[in-house]
């Protein structure tokens, strides 16, 4: 069945100018996001994974309309919203939950006041606000009397629940979750993820989930995109990307995840550990941006930026090795390295 995606991002690019000198001339640019395209269908949880500096948060901010893209478009439910900075209707459809619940709630407002902010902004009838806040707190499984408390009286997990309640206030269709649990302990994280999964089912929500935690992504997302230096290195269904990662970066990333059982360790691709760190987005390497750290880099990688190669149904990766494989063998390659059990 072909259904129009709820969110479609195409060719999204964001460059931040670097200014210098006495007249603040433009001397360079931080190329935070480069030509990123993906689509999210209704009811889906799409995950964007990547290390710091990979452009995850910049994409999130462009999707919710906090940044204007340098190039490319964001389509929501068929209409172009990329220029709509501050568009009221769009703001009602898309909400965001930020990473640090400690700083995303105003310490001088009670929980009820914070949750009511989007309601007031969208002209919700004043008389009904208190009831709506109580209903929202119930949805995120917080006691009603939390309405009169202040953020400092709440634990990290409880604050994140409040932030979720606030995002739900205007009945959005898409929620952008920017590392919603990275500041929380695992026992609290599990509860929050459980809550989000429940709400998604109940309210028919769609999530754009941003995280650096691959194990979490494996369990929560239906499809994922792996970002490296502002570019998508690989996209596909979670099962495909984790089961047969095609891009060396994806393999290295999954291989580096510390796990808690032998069973999981056996699932990790064995690939030599990456050396060095992610280069600065203001000096992106020529050719394939990953070639400086890639254990398999060969000549073309230093010159030509690879295009996407289709490696499976809805599963694509940007790597010269895959192009080679498809050119020599007609079959679809699974991975450039043989997968073997981790010692």
């Amino acid at each position: 069945m072909i259904e129009a995606p709820l969110l479609e991002v195409s060719g999204l690019t964001k460059h931040f100018p670097i200014r210098g000198g006495i007249i603040q001339q433009r001397v360079g640019a931080v190329r935070a996001v480069n030509d990123v395209s993906f689509a999210i269908r209704k009811g889906e949880v799409f995950g964007l994974a990547g290390e710091s500096g990979s452009g995850k948060s910049t994409i999130a901010r462009m999707v919710v309309g906090l940044y204007r893209p340098t190039a490319g478009t964001v389509h929501f439910d068929g209409s172009d919203v990329s220029g709509l900075i501050g568009g009221r209707d769009y703001r009602k459809q898309v909400q965001m939950v930020f990473q640090n619940p400690g700083s995303s709630l105003n310490p001088r407002r009670t929980i009820a006041q914070s949750v009511a902010v989007p309601l007031i902004f969208h002209d919700y009838p004043k008389a009904k606000i208190a009831d709506r806040v109580a209903e929202l707190l119930e949805m995120v499984e917080l006691p009603r009397n939390f309405a009169i408390r202040y953020p400092h009286e709440l634990s990290g997990g409880q604050k994140q629940r409040v932030a979720i309640a606030r995002a739900l206030a205007v009945e959005p269709r898409l929620i952008v979750l920017d590392e919603p649990t990275s500041a929380l302990d695992v026992s609290v994280q599990a509860k929050i993820i459980d809550l989000l999964a429940g709400l998604a089912g109940e309210l028919g929500l769609t999530f754009l989930f941003i995280s650096h935690d691959l194990s979490l992504m494996r369990n929560f997302c239906s499809r994922v995109g792996i970002l490296y230096l502002g570019r998508l290195a690989e996209t596909g269904s979670t099962i495909d990307v984790f089961g047969s990662p095609a891009h060396p970066y994806t393999q290295a990333l999954i291989g580096a995840v510390p796990v808690v059982s032998d069973e999981e360790a056996a699932l990790k691709p064995s690939i030599p550990a990456l050396s060095g760190e992610i280069p600065s987005p203001s000096r992106i390497p020529k050719g394939c941006s990953f070639h400086t750290r890639c254990p398999f880099a060969f000549e073309p990688c230093r010159q030509i930026d690879p295009e996407f190669t289709i490696v499976g149904q809805g599963h694509e990766a940007r790597c010269h090795l895959l192009e080679e494989r498809t050119a020599t063998a007609a079959t679809v390659p699974v991975s450039p390295v043989e997968r073997s059990a981790h010692p």
């Binding site: 695992v186 599990a190 993820i193 999964a197 935690d213 194990s215 979490l216 699932l267």
Partner: peptide, 10 residues
């Protein structure tokens, strides 16, 4: 702890 095998229960 979320499991890489995708079998977490949360």
């Amino acid at each position: 702890v979320p499991k890489l095998s995708g079998t977490s229960t949360f």
